[in-house]
Design a protein around this nucleic acid. Structure first.
Length: 565
RNA sequence: GGCCCUGUAGUGUAGUGGUUAACAUUUUGGCCUUUGGAGCCAGCGACAGCGGUUCGAAUCCGCUCAGGGCUGCCA
């Protein structure tokens, strides 16, 4: 894959290289992407997907899609559906390797039985609160449960009765017998099974005991013959337990490797916060284009390849870091620039009348579809006497360095003519119309006498324009780290201007042919895509990201120097 | 107070005992241009600190400092 191929190796690929060299796992590479189906995937998951599936591709190995569905109280089929869709959309293929942790519940139970028989696990009657109290603190060792030394026979009996539903939620748990004084909390007799009388999205009411993450995850990896179990940094302290379980059972033992999860400025990435925004109505669902969810980004107009390129280019390491949102935007512009067809669209229309142009004439101007891609060809754009241009492309009293249209000034209308503004028509002191003339000799955009103009602007024929609603998206939050502000709820930093709806935009007729999710560029404005709200009556367009805007920067600077003086 | 992990330009990464410390992004100039887009050229900008080992340390060792994680019957 072109843009997604990594330029330099990271520490994970170094480990894999070393393993292959040493013939560990007989040179196999088998990874997995193991989401819990309790929410929609976001750009942080994309990093993990690209890592796991990407490594499998590079090493000619395999990558499984596995749902880690061990907690029925939080999980839903709808999330399973969306996750599968997102992974596919990103361009990855799990082939016939779609698995559910819940498919292994029988095997996991069998392994638990083995652990009990080996005297390495026991049933504890302590309540959740008591267990917590016995666990000790960061500096004080824990104390043993009074039930820790039950006989194997008693434990076996009790555990089977737990499974048979003889006890209520929370009455008993199965715990590994490790070390209550261990400096690592995860090793202080961790809970393996809890009682939960809940209906599971996959196994329905078959089970009333459910395995805990630490017990389940290593077994899932082991059962699936995974070689490298890649997860995020917060599981570092769990690795000794991961290893302990697999060693205690004497089963196939993959290795866990941890990397730093992705953080992005001006957004939030935790499922809890995303859920809060969705359920609190701060956004319109999980696929709101303001959200960093895969579904939201898709609707916003991000291409799968742009996301893959981003994930590849940010690299993988063990330092906690915060990637600039600017970099994501750079990656999407970079990708879309090469692939997007260009169109002309006017977001804030200002009428222009060409005085020296015949009333009924329609001239088809030839426009290039994509200057980056000659194969994209050309199209015809109708030019007529009455046109719309962008309000910001005209200034009655232009400041220095404003090169666009102004009274008495000649500029170029893209793919059309040199145009001179002669008169400004106002109503209530507001500019409502411009009277201009063209130089007929400049048709196509060049003057036979070789004279130049300072700028080129886009336009749309009034008679042919399609009305469109354009939704402009901006960053979701006003601060770069909304989740990291002490004493203030992250929602306080929501950007009220993250969505701006423009109802009366005028776009060129060729847009009619596009379908929902089609991506394109409005020349001189930015990258956009068709929103699925589009129907026969209404054309709705989402802005993915604006073009780099040098004039806006100059303007900003001019205003700043004005303020200083 | 314990255990684990991590410190390289503003940001993200590379660098595995000898390099003018690299790349990308950001930013600042300039060139080019029928998108003030794209592209091209140049510039600014970093090894957390202190010791040690070594002819030589961003790299190895020690200490200090800083950041992150760990006390769910969540994952």
């Amino acid at each position: 894959m072109d843009s997604t191929s990594h330029l330099t190796k990271d520490f994970i690929r170094d480990i894999i290289d070393e393993d292959i060299k040493n013939n560990k796992y007989s040179g196999r590479v088998h990874t997995r992407f193991p989401p819990e189906p309790n929410g929609y995937l976001h750009i942080g998951h994309a990093k993990s997907i690209c890592l796991n599936f990407g490594i499998a591709e590079e090493y000619k190995g395999l990558c499984n899609l596995r749902f880690d569905d061990t907690n029925p109280s939080k999980e839903e089929q709808e999330y399973v559906r969306s996750i599968k869709e997102n992974v596919q959309w990103l361009g990855f293929n799990w082939e016939d390797r779609l698995y559910f942790a819940s498919d292994y519940f029988d095997q996991m139970y069998g392994y638990a039985l083995q652990l009990v028989k080996d005297g390495k696990a026991y049933v504890d009657d302590l309540s959740a609160k008591e267990i917590s109290e016995c666990r000790g603190t960061l500096t004080k060792p824990g104390v043993n449960s009074p039930y820790r030394d039950r006989s194997v026979e008693e434990n076996l009996d009790l555990f089977q009765r737990m499974k048979n539903g003889e006890f209520k939620d929370g009455e008993k748990v199965l715990r590994a017998k490790i070390d209550m004084a261990h400096p690592n909390f995860n090793m202080r007799d961790p809970i393996i099974y809890r009682i939960l009388h809940a209906t599971h999205h996959n196994t329905a009411d078959k089970w009333c005991i459910y395995p805990m993450y630490d017990w389940a995850h290593g077994l899932e990896d082991s059962i699936e013959n995974i070689t490298h179990s890649i997860c995020t940094l917060e599981f570092e302290n769990h690795r000794p337990l991961y290893d302990w379980f697999l060693d205690a059972l004497g089963v196939y033992h993959p290795q866990q490797i941890e990397f730093a999860r992705l953080n992005l400025t001006y957004t939030v990435m935790s499922k809890r916060m995303l859920l809060e925004l969705v359920e609190g109505g701060c956004v319109n669902g999980w696929d709101d284009p303001r959200l960093p969810t895969i579904s939201g980004m898709r609707k916003r107009g991000y291409s799968p390849s742009s996301i893959r390129a981003f994930c590849s280019r940010i690299g993988v390491a063990k330092v906690n870091s915060m990637v600039d949102f600017d970099f994501l935007e750079h990656c999407v512009r970079d990708d879309l620039n090469k692939t997007s067809p260009r169109f002309m669209g006017v977001l804030h229309p200002l009428k222009v009348v060409i005085e020296n142009y015949p009333e009924d004439k329609v001239d088809e101007m030839k426009a290039i579809n994509n200057p980056e891609d000659p194969d994209a060809g050309t199209r015809k754009v109708p030019f007529t006497k009455e046109l719309y241009i962008e309000q910001r492309d005209f200034m009655e009293d232009p400041p220095k360095k404003f090169y666009r249209l102004a009274p008495g000034r000649e500029i170029r209308f893209r793919y059309a003519y040199f145009v001179t503004c002669n008169e400004v028509i106002k109503k209530n002191n507001k500019i409502v119309e411009l009277r201009c003339t063209i130089d007929p000799a400049t048709r196509g955009g060049n003057a036979p006498d070789g004279r130049k103009v300072k700028s080129t602007i886009h336009w749309v024929s009034a008679a042919h324009a399609i009305d469109a609603e354009v939704r402009l998206y901006d960053r979701l939050f006003t601060v770069d780290n909304p989740a990291g502000q002490k004493d203030t709820d992250f929602k306080e930093f929501l950007n009220p201007d993250a969505l701006e709806v423009l109802k009366s935009c005028k776009v060129e007729p060729a847009l009619q042919k596009l379908k929902p999710f089609d991506r394109f560029q409005f020349e001189r404005i930015g990258y956009f895509c068709i929103d699925p709200d589009t129907n026969g009556e209404k054309l709705v367009i989402n802005r993915t990201v604006g073009l780099r805007d040098t004039w806006a920067k100059i303007q900003k600077k001019q205003q700043q120097t004005k303020k200083q003086n």
